[in-house]
Each structure stands twice: as C-alpha cells, then as structure tokens.
Nucleic acid binder design. Structure first.
Lengths: 111, 111
DNA sequence: AAGCGTTATACTTGTTTGAGAATAACGGTG
DNA sequence: CACCGTTATTCTCAAACAAGTATAACGCTT
C-alpha cells in the first residue's frame, strides 16, 4: 500500500503543476519549447497548447517568444514565470517530504 | 490562486480515496449501498462497480452483503473496512490542515 | 530566393471515464 | 405465490480529455 497524489495550482482551472514545471525548466536550459517538449517525449503541439492554456489562466506570459531568424526562433522563460517556478519548486519539495511523513505516521505498519 | 489536489491509497491501482470514504460512511448509516449511492447522486451501478474494484485491489471485503428478505437485503461495512475508514479519515484530516499551511507559507501574499 | 528550425494553430482520431438502461436473483412478508 | 427493495451484472451510449497529424508563417543565413 502506498500513497499517490496529484496537486496543482488552480486559477480559473489548472494553472500550474509538475508537468509545466518540468517543461519550463527545460525551456530555460534549451531556449526552445520545441526541444523542451522533445526531451519530455511530448509533442510540440501538446506543449504549446499547455503553455497557452496556463498563460490564459494565470493572466501573464510564461514565455517570451521569437519566431524566425538564424536558429529558427526560440523561447525564453519570463521573469514572472521564473519566480513562479522557484516558489513552486520549494513548495513542491516540502509537500513531498511532509506527505511521506504523514503517510508513514498513519499507515506505518502496513495497511 | 488556490491549491487543488487529489490523493488516494494505491494498491494494484487506486484502492481508496475520498469518494469511497464518503460512500462507505453513508452505507454505515443506511445499511444500503443503494441508498448511499442515491444520497451522493451516484448511480447504483457505479457505486457497485467502485466497491467491487476496491475490494479486488485491497484484497478484502468492504461490505457484507445480504440479498432478499423483508427490506430487500442490505449491506454492512466490514470491520476491516471500518478500520481503514478510521485510519484514512484521520490521515485525510491532517493532510488537509498541513497542505493548507504549507500553501500559505509559500504563496502567502498572492500568487 | 531557398533552406532551416522554430513558433503557431486547426483538425482529427483515439482513449478514458461516467451514466444510465436493462435484466436477473434473492428471500422475507402478506 | 406474488410483491418489494435490495444486490448483482452486462451492455451501450455519451461526454470529456489526450494526443498526434498536418499546415502555415516567420526571419535570418547563404
């Protein structure tokens, strides 16, 4: 028996969670949503839809886009998104630790 | 911005969570899965499927059934299920409190 | 002007999930 | 033995959601 869970920030619907967090981390490294999606075995269209939806719900841009040009374009994580990522990352880490502890406390010796 | 989450106990798949917990609480009161489902605006067939699946995954019976008879029959919560409910209820309550605290700690003044 | 890798977006298909309909069996009661 | 409300079970339909496919535009480089 183990504990399973999903959590996310809600603002007019799902507005941020583990998936977007991982995706943005990779965009930061690669400066490309295309490559970030590829690394996660996610289709570009799905990644794009995801980001667009989150931006609509959050009310601010997560990516600063550039299309065309030498490298074809690219995307950078905005400062606001970067701040959210940091907040979420710390929050998420504590959650993980706390939930594990609580689970063991209540279901320590088997179900 | 608010925190949203789902959590459940996993054992060969989803084995227990808020929905089953509420359902069993009502079975306890009414001694009828039929009525318990009705109270939650859930179809009986769905409730029945749910219980059956959980029992398969948990490996023990949640309900003690009786069919036919004066009142048509009925279902009682087994002692093992009752124990699980109690454990889960306490766990769930602490989770709620802890997560709320952590959320405020990290996202206290707005997003 | 052609080529490249990117962003942008609609369309279409497939998968999961839920809900109800329908049917059967059960066993006290009157 | 008919009635009742329950448990038991399968089937089908609909809705929600996920995911891929295809196409277009962009702008720097050569």
């Amino acid at each position: 028996m183990k504990l399973a869970y999903k959590l996310w920030l809600d603002h007019h619907g799902k507005a941020f969670g583990d998936g977007p967090y991982e995706l943005l981390k990779r965009v930061k490294k690669t400066n490309s949503l295309h490559q970030a999606a590829f690394q996660m075995s996610m289709s570009y269209s799905k990644a794009w839809r995801l980001i667009r939806t989150l931006e609509e719900r959050l009310g601010f841009a997560l990516l600063e886009r550039k299309t065309g040009g030498i490298s074809g374009g690219g995307s950078k994580v905005t400062p606001e998104a970067s701040r959210l990522m940091k907040q979420y990352g710390q929050f998420r880490k504590e959650i993980e630790k706390t939930l594990t502890e609580l689970f063991h406390k209540h279901f320590g010796q088997g179900l």
